[in-house]
């Protein structure tokens, strides 16, 4: 899966970019309704500023998105054991 430099870059794009967009949207949605201080208190994470709360939540959501996208891509690229390689078109 991780072949040439170009392929690595494109896999990186496919995994990081959609998850980045989703993380941005969900962070905006989440904090439209929840104050980051309240959220951080609830989950027991110390945040000394709201900016830290926004940032941590965004990075966390991005990480989750990256894992999901990587799994999806991995499943897409897994060959079907029922077919011989030579038969693939």
């Amino acid at each position: 899966m991780m072949g040439t430099g170009g392929s690595r870059k494109k896999v990186l794009i496919a995994v990081t970019w959609p998850s980045f967009v989703c993380a941005g949207i969900f962070t905006a949605l989440l904090f439209a309704f929840v104050d980051p201080y309240v959220l951080m208190d609830e989950i027991g994470v110390h945040a000394d500023s709201r900016l830290a709360g926004y940032s941590l939540a965004f990075l966390y959501l991005w990480l989750v998105g990256i894992v999901v996208a990587a799994m999806a891509l991995f499943i897409m690229c897994t060959p079907d054991p029922g077919k011989k390689e030579g038969n693939q078109t």
Binding site: M76, C77, P79, D80, K83, N87, Q88, T89
Partner: peptide, 8 residues
Amino acid sequence: MSSDAPSL
């Protein structure tokens, strides 16, 4: 899906 793997 697998048949599409090379094109993907």
